[in-house]
Simulated assay, not measured.
Amino acid sequence: MIGNLKPLEIVLIIAVILLLFGAKKLPEMARSLGKSARILKSEAKAMKKDDEAPAEPAADPSAAQPAAPRTIQAAPGDVTSSRPVSEPNRTAQS
């Protein structure tokens, strides 16, 4: 269906989109789409990194220092959308 579009039809579709959404809304929509893509990419990297890291239990639990809470950021320098990650406590139960 899309492969059969002629250049004039594509121009008409773009013109209709501009009329519907307006020139002011399109850059804002593109920015939010890019930000969403960056968030998705960073979340996927974090999940992949968590899967690759082997879980090594500490030999002496009293010697282990509490780790600072991790924070996932959407983009470098973007502190408005960063949030702490809540991780479940992994305790050995007998």
Rank of each mutant, 00 (worst) to 15 (best):
48 K>M: 09
80 T>H: 12
47 M>Q: 12
75 A>H: 05
51 D>T: 03
65 Q>E: 09
90 R>T: 11
87 E>A: 01
59 A>S: 04
58 A>S: 11
17 I>E: 12
14 I>L: 15
46 A>H: 03
14 I>A: 15
94 S>I: 07
86 S>E: 10
51 D>L: 14
29 M>K: 13
33 L>C: 04
74 A>M: 04
19 L>S: 15
65 Q>V: 09
66 P>C: 05
88 P>Q: 03
44 A>W: 12
36 S>G: 07
45 K>D: 13
37 A>N: 14
41 K>T: 05
37 A>H: 14
23 A>H: 13
12 L>P: 00
58 A>P: 01
69 P>Y: 00
34 G>M: 14
70 R>C: 01
48 K>D: 14
14 I>Y: 10
1 M>Y: 10
31 R>Y: 04
15 A>K: 09
76 P>H: 07
90 R>H: 08
80 T>Q: 15
11 V>P: 00
32 S>D: 14
40 L>C: 07
74 A>D: 02
66 P>M: 06
21 F>W: 03
10 I>M: 07
67 A>Q: 11
35 K>H: 10
77 G>V: 06
60 D>V: 00
78 D>M: 10
3 G>C: 02
62 S>H: 09
92 A>V: 03
12 L>N: 05
12 L>T: 06
83 R>H: 09
84 P>R: 10
5 L>S: 15
89 N>A: 14
91 T>A: 11
80 T>P: 01
83 R>C: 05
34 G>P: 01
29 M>V: 13
5 L>W: 08
28 E>P: 00
24 K>F: 09
59 A>F: 08
65 Q>R: 03
37 A>M: 13
26 L>N: 09
21 F>P: 00
70 R>W: 05
93 Q>S: 06
17 I>F: 08
83 R>F: 01
47 M>E: 14
2 I>T: 11
32 S>Y: 07
47 M>Y: 07
48 K>N: 09
7 P>G: 01
43 E>H: 12
26 L>Y: 13
25 K>P: 00
28 E>C: 05
15 A>F: 07
8 L>E: 13
33 L>I: 04
79 V>W: 03
42 S>F: 01
62 S>M: 11
39 I>R: 01
72 I>T: 01
21 F>T: 02
65 Q>M: 02
70 R>L: 08
19 L>Q: 15
36 S>C: 01
43 E>M: 14
6 K>N: 04
10 I>N: 07
54 P>T: 14
21 F>K: 02
14 I>V: 13
48 K>Q: 14
39 I>S: 08
44 A>C: 11
60 D>W: 00
79 V>F: 10
68 A>F: 12
49 K>F: 03
48 K>P: 00
12 L>E: 08
18 L>C: 12
19 L>I: 10
81 S>D: 13
38 R>M: 12
58 A>Q: 02
23 A>E: 09
19 L>F: 14
39 I>G: 02
59 A>D: 07
54 P>S: 08
66 P>H: 05
64 A>T: 15
33 L>M: 04
79 V>I: 03
83 R>K: 12
77 G>S: 12
45 K>G: 06
51 D>Y: 02
49 K>D: 06
36 S>L: 04
71 T>V: 10
53 A>D: 08
56 E>F: 00
92 A>S: 12
75 A>P: 00
16 V>N: 12
90 R>Q: 15
15 A>I: 06
56 E>R: 00
66 P>N: 06
39 I>T: 07
28 E>N: 08
